[in-house]
Computed example of a mutant assay.
Amino acid sequence: MTRRVGYAPGVYDLFHVGHLNILRHARSRCDHLVAGVVSDEMAALAKGRAPVVPLPERLEIVRSVRFVDAAFVETVPDKLETWRQVRFDVIFKGDDWRGTEKGDRLERDFATVGVEVVYLPYTVHTSSTLLRRALHQLLDSA
């Protein structure tokens, strides 16, 4: 029997329930879940700012989540290159990617290697961006 390997990439900065939900839902849809933790440099490139929590700490947090079987540090922007290194069968993204240019490109790229793209419910009421904004407001008012 072939095991289904899943891949759930993310920055996982300011770890919150949305991150936990993605990992929980992803693990329920595969036999082995690898969480891709984006490096500080790649996060700054993708989001225009460095994570608050440094990579070694984010990696340790994600590795410690019971739904995660392995963690991998993403150091390249090309998800197909990451696939060549990790060899997963399905990649999980938040459903905020569905129907976007990034999501459509991801689906096209992974169709060429037989990887399924699965969108999982995005937790709207909390995000690292919202947490970062709240922290800045607290610090500004102090």
Rank of each mutant, 00 (worst) to 15 (best):
M1V: 14
M1C: 07
T2L: 10
R3V: 13
R4V: 10
V5C: 04
G6P: 01
A8H: 05
G10W: 05
V11P: 03
Y12K: 03
Y12C: 00
Y12S: 01
H16L: 06
V17I: 15
G18P: 00
H19N: 04
L20W: 11
I22V: 13
I22A: 14
R24W: 08
H25Q: 15
H25V: 14
A26E: 07
R27S: 15
R27Q: 13
R29Y: 10
C30G: 10
L33G: 10
A35G: 12
G36S: 06
V37W: 07
S39C: 05
S39N: 06
D40F: 03
D40G: 05
M42Q: 15
M42W: 04
M42C: 03
M42A: 04
A44E: 04
L45I: 03
R49G: 02
A50S: 05
A50T: 01
P51F: 03
P51Q: 00
P51A: 02
V53W: 02
P56I: 05
P56R: 01
E57M: 01
E57L: 00
E57R: 03
R58M: 05
L59P: 06
E60V: 00
E60H: 06
I61C: 03
V62Q: 09
R63P: 05
S64M: 05
V65T: 07
V65L: 13
R66D: 04
F67L: 07
F67C: 13
A71P: 11
A71R: 11
F72M: 10
V73A: 12
E74H: 11
V76K: 14
D78Y: 09
K79N: 09
K79R: 15
T82E: 08
W83D: 00
W83T: 03
W83G: 03
R84I: 01
Q85A: 12
Q85H: 07
V86Y: 08
V86L: 04
V90H: 04
V90W: 08
I91A: 00
I91S: 02
K93P: 00
K93T: 02
G94F: 00
D95A: 01
D96P: 00
W97I: 08
W97K: 01
R98E: 15
G99F: 00
G99C: 03
E101Q: 02
K102F: 06
D104C: 05
R105C: 01
L106G: 04
L106E: 08
R108C: 05
R108D: 09
R108Q: 15
A111Y: 08
A111I: 09
A111W: 08
A111F: 12
T112G: 04
V113Q: 14
V113F: 12
G114F: 14
G114S: 12
V115R: 13
E116M: 09
V118T: 15
V118D: 13
Y119C: 13
Y119E: 13
L120W: 12
P121K: 14
Y122R: 14
Y122A: 09
Y122M: 09
V124N: 09
T126H: 12
T126A: 15
S127G: 07
S128Y: 10
S128H: 02
T129P: 02
L130D: 07
L131G: 08
A134R: 15
Q137S: 13
Q137F: 11
L138T: 12
L139W: 10
D140F: 12
S141G: 13
